[in-house]
């Protein structure tokens, strides 16, 4: 039983990271109906920048703030320069373009910093607490707190601000939004900015747990795609819940299902995706606008 709770807690911590990246994917998808396969690699670039600032002697907290803001600009820039020109193109075109973003940003990190792994500075103190035999580290608690703050901030912006209303309206219908005087394109641009910052948060959380490398976000992207599919592609709440479920399923499955084990744990998000697509294709919290192709 102690083992179960230990795995549950650990799973929630990884799940929170998947949830952050899934949130970034969902933010973009509900506004522009685009799956940004480059989201993880954009986050990797941001994480490298944060690491580089730390190497140059900038305190970690400050460098995270700077790069968080810079990531926002990166998202805006990618939208203006890359996505807007193909916004009227077919889905296939846009998929290839975002796959191109994936390749581009991964190659950029490799070119600038090489393939060697770097140690990302820790954001949370080392220690932890034993609660009835279950070890809760400060880093686990910190990750969950960050996710909670992120979710609360997002929720509050969407629910209570004029900007959030405009972003939700733009996601619902660009034509109806134009007719009430919302500058829809600007909202989409801001959406890409928010998503890039959210993706960076995911990368900054995962950085200290792994090492920094140009491919570090690839598995996370896979888990995030599964989380978004599980939660529903047009639901930010779904992305959060989906991420946590995938994290816990991974952690429990790798230990309690002997035929999976630690080596095959990547099967779990794929299995989750498969099952949800068979059972409820819109996801747990998605609305029922599924197009058959």
């Amino acid at each position: 039983m102690v083992l179960f709770f230990q795995l549950l807690i650990d799973g929630l911590a990884s799940g929170a990271i998947y949830a952050s990246l899934a949130l970034a994917l969902v933010l973009i998808f509900r506004a522009t109906r685009i799956v940004n396969f480059g989201q993880g690699e954009m986050a990797t670039l941001s994480a490298y920048c944060a690491w580089q600032l730390c190497e140059w002697g900038v305190p970690i907290a400050l460098s995270l703030l700077i790069v968080g803001a810079a990531s926002f600009l990166l998202g805006v820039l990618v939208f203006r320069a890359v996505i807007k020109p193909v916004s009227k193109a077919s889905t296939e075109t846009v998929v290839v373009v975002t796959l191109g973003l994936f390749v581009f940003f991964q190659a950029l990190c490799l070119w600038l910093w090489g393939a060697d792994q770097r140690a990302f500075p820790a954001m949370f103190p080392g220690g932890g607490w034993d609660i009835l035999g279950v070890r809760v580290t400060a880093s686990t608690l910190g990750i969950l707190l960050v996710l909670l703050c992120l979710a609360a901030t997002m929720g509050a912006i969407f629910r209570f601000t004029r900007l959030g209303l405009a972003m939700r309206a733009s996601a619902y219908s660009s034509e109806k939004s134009l007719l009430v005087g919302i500058r829809v394109e600007r909202m989409l641009m801001l959406g890409w900015g928010f998503a890039a910052t959210t993706g960076f948060i995911a990368a900054a959380l995962v950085g200290p747990r792994l090492f920094l490398s140009p491919t570090m976000m690839m598995p996370i992207l896979l888990y995030a795609l599964a989380s978004a599919t599980l939660g529903g592609w047009d639901s930010p709440l779904g992305a959060l819940v989906g991420g946590l479920i995938v994290g816990v399923a991974e952690s429990l499955g790798a230990t309690f299902l002997p035929f999976i084990g630690a080596d095959l744990r990547v099967v779990i998000p794929i299995a989750v995706t498969l099952v949800i697509l068979l059972v409820r294709p819109v996801g747990l919290f998605g609305s029922s606008t599924v197009v058959k192709v």
Binding site: R162, A166, A169, Y172, K176, L179, V180, I182
Partner: peptide, 25 residues
């Protein structure tokens, strides 16, 4: 102001949020 065919309301917003969106300008 233009009320399009098929109403132009935001279906998953509350009535009050629709009015707030209408006052966006």
């Amino acid at each position: 102001a233009h009320i399009p065919q098929g109403r132009g309301t935001f279906g998953d917003f509350s009535v009050e949020e629709n009015l707030a969106a209408g006052a966006f300008t």
